[in-house]
Simulated assay, not measured.
Amino acid sequence: MRILVIGGTRDHLGGVEAFCDRAKISMERICPELRIERLWTSTAYLSLRRLPAFVLGVLRLIASRASGNAVAWIQYVNLPDLIYVLLAKALGYETVVTPHLGLNWKSQRNSTLRTISRLILSRADRIALLSQTQESEISLPSNVQRSLIRTFLPPEVLEPISVPANTDKSELPSGELRLIHASRLSVAKGTFLMLDVCARLQAAGVTFSAQIVGSADEETRISLRKSIEEKNLSEHVSLLGWATPEQLMGQLRNADVLVHLSQVDSYPLIVLEALASGTLPLALDLAGARSMISDYDGFLVSRLQPVEDAVTHLTTCTLADIRSRAAAHAGQVRADFAWPTAATLLLESLQPTRSPT
C-alpha cells in the first residue's frame, strides 16, 4: 500500500506539520511494508511571493502518479489545500481528507467560501475527522464517508516516566507563575491576546514570566516586539523563535499554564501536548478545546471577554493548585494517545473504499 501524506508548509513549521511527520513515523513502525511519501502543499501565508512553492507542490503531486496508484491523505488547513483534493481525484487517487480547521476560519465564516469548501470536499472518498466536534463546526458534505482518527502527540511526552509529572516544577520559584504560548504566531492564534493577559497580570501585581514560542512572518514579529515594548513587558515576556519538538516539550514541562486563545484551532494539538506534559491549558471556549478540557482539566474563557476571564482564572487559582491539577492528568493523556492506537485508527481510515484503477 502506498500513501501520500499531503499538507503543511516546510518553512512555517507548526502543529499540522508535526502531526504529518508523527503520523508517517507511527504508520511505518506498525506496518514497515507501507510506502509512505511526504508532500508539502505550502499554503501557509500564501501570497504572490510564496506562490512558487505552492506551484512546486502541485507539480510534485502530478509527478507522483508515475510511481503508481496511492491513497492521497490531504490535510485541509487553508482553502488552497482543496486544490490538491481536485488534483488527486483527477489523478485517480483514493482521496482522504482530514480537516484542521473550525468554526471561526474564514473558509467557514464566509458563506461563499463555505459552499466552495463543501462542494470540493464532496469529491473526496472519505473525511477523517480529528474530533467528533468538527461535525458541528465545519460544513461537511453528507454524501462522503466519515471516520474518526486521533492526533499524534510528540514522542517526548508519551515516553514512560518513573517520577511524577510535576517533578521538574518542584524546583521552580514557588511564587512565580510561568506562562507559555506556543503556536504559529498571529492575531488569529491569540498571540496578541497573550500579551494583553500579561499586561493585566502585571497591572495586578502578579509575579510571573512568559514565553512566546513559534514561527511568524516578519511583519508579525515586528508588531509583537513593538507591543511588548509599549506594554512595558520586556522584563516578563521572552519572544522566542521556532522550537524543535524536544525543546518545546521541555518548555511546556517547565511552564505552569499554556495560554492558548486561538480563535481558529478546531482541535488544538498544543492543548493535549500541554496536558501530557503536566501543564494546565487555558483556552478559548471552542468545541475542540472544550472537549479536551472536559475530558481532562484546564480553564475555558469566553470568546466575548477572553482576557478578562483569563486574568480571573490566573489570579483566583493558587499556583499549588494549578500544578497539582496539571500533574494529575498527564499520565492518562499519555495512555489515551499512544501512537500504536492512533496509527491503527488512521490506517483503518486510509483503507481504499473502491477498487484501484
Rank of each mutant, 00 (worst) to 15 (best):
I161Q: 09
A210I: 05
G175H: 12
T207F: 10
L193K: 13
V187K: 10
L177G: 00
N166C: 08
D196G: 10
A165I: 00
H181M: 07
K169G: 10
A199C: 10
P164G: 02
L179H: 08
A210G: 08
A210D: 03
F192G: 02
P164T: 06
E156G: 06
A203V: 05
F208H: 02
L177N: 01
T191Q: 00
Q145H: 11
P173T: 02
P155C: 13
L195A: 10
A203N: 04
F208M: 00
G190R: 06
V213G: 03
E171W: 12
S183V: 11
A182N: 10
R178S: 12
T167Q: 03
A188W: 12
A210C: 15
E218T: 11
S209E: 11
P173R: 08
D196N: 13
A188N: 13
G190Y: 04
L158M: 10
V197Y: 05
E219D: 06
M194V: 11
G205C: 00
V206R: 12
T151A: 11
T167A: 00
V206L: 06
P164I: 02
D196E: 15
T191L: 01
P155G: 14
D217C: 04
S215D: 15
L153F: 00
S170P: 07
I222A: 13
E171P: 07
A204M: 01
V157Y: 03
S215H: 14
P155F: 14
N143S: 00
E156D: 01
P155I: 14
L172G: 07
L185S: 02
S170T: 13
G214M: 01
F192N: 05
Q145M: 10
P160Q: 02
R150I: 11
R200Q: 12
S215R: 13
L193D: 15
P173H: 06
E218D: 03
R184S: 14
R146A: 08
A182K: 09
P164F: 04
K189E: 05
P164W: 00
P155S: 15
L158Y: 09
Q202G: 07
T191S: 09
I222S: 13
I180E: 00
R178E: 10
I222V: 15
V197G: 04
T151H: 13
F208W: 07
E176C: 07
T151K: 12
T191W: 06
Q202E: 09
G205V: 04
E171H: 14
V197E: 02
E159M: 15
Q211Y: 10
E159H: 14
V213M: 01
Q211H: 13
S170Q: 15
A165D: 01
A182H: 03
M194D: 09
K189F: 02
S215Q: 14
V206C: 07
I212K: 04
E171N: 12
L177V: 04
L153H: 08
L172W: 11
G205T: 03
R221M: 03
P154Y: 03
V144N: 06
E219W: 03
P164H: 00
D168C: 06
R221C: 04
I149T: 15
P173Q: 01
F208Y: 09
L172F: 12
F152P: 08
N166W: 05
L158N: 09
L193Y: 13
R146V: 08
D168Q: 08
P160G: 07
S147K: 09
L193F: 12
S183E: 10
L179S: 06
M194C: 12
L177Q: 04
T191K: 06
R221N: 04
H181K: 03
V187A: 10
P173Y: 05
D196M: 09
